[in-house]
């Protein structure tokens, strides 16, 4: 089971997704688009930064692309911030349609003073809920008025 946490404020999944990068490579034959060079993916108040993001298009049944982005696959060390929370991990897959981000590879989530580490963080941007899985470790800052961690 995973530890449920709040991540950022719920946001509408239909907001425009903006991607800025130093370079974009379009390979017609392979049907791929690759952003590279400090790529920033933004939607609403979610920001996801990574050195490389691969775009996979939506495809219909027999595999030719029907236009539209299906998933953004960020690799090479990803940080995601939304509102006050920030999460870091090796890779992240952002499925634009469902507004879900799955971050994997020793993920570290920081919320104010507290930190939550685990192997895999799944965040639903639409409802602002996240689930951390894979030997989850919670790090408290032992201060006298430390806020209760939001773990349910």
């Amino acid at each position: 089971q995973g530890t449920g946490i709040a991540f950022g404020t719920p946001q509408d999944g239909d907001q425009p997704v903006e991607v800025t990068a130093e370079e974009l490579q379009l390979d017609q034959a392979a049907g791929t688009a690759v952003f590279s060079g400090n790529v920033i993916v933004g939607q609403g108040d979610m920001r996801l930064t990574a050195p490389r993001v691969d775009v996979t298009y939506m495809t219909d049944a027999d595999g030719n692309s029907t236009g539209g982005i299906d998933r953004l696959h960020a690799t090479g060390g990803v940080t995601m911030t939304s509102g006050g929370e920030a999460a870091e991990g090796r890779e992240a897959v952002y499925t634009v349609g469902s507004g879900q981000v799955v971050m994997t590879g020793d993920v570290l989530l920081t919320q104010g003073q507290n930190a939550l580490a685990g192997e895999r963080l799944t965040v639903g941007l639409d409802d602002g809920q996240g689930v951390m899985e894979g030997n989850v470790r919670v790090v408290f800052q032992p201060q006298d008025e430390a806020a209760e961690p939001a773990a349910q």
């Binding site: 997704v17 991607v19 370079e23 034959a29």
Partner: peptide, 17 residues
């Protein structure tokens, strides 16, 4: 195969709506 490369600052806006 022909690969198209956009550079010198790429900014893309995608409307999922």
């Amino acid at each position: 195969n022909v690969v198209m490369v956009f550079n010198e600052g790429v900014r893309l806006v995608y409307l999922p709506a």
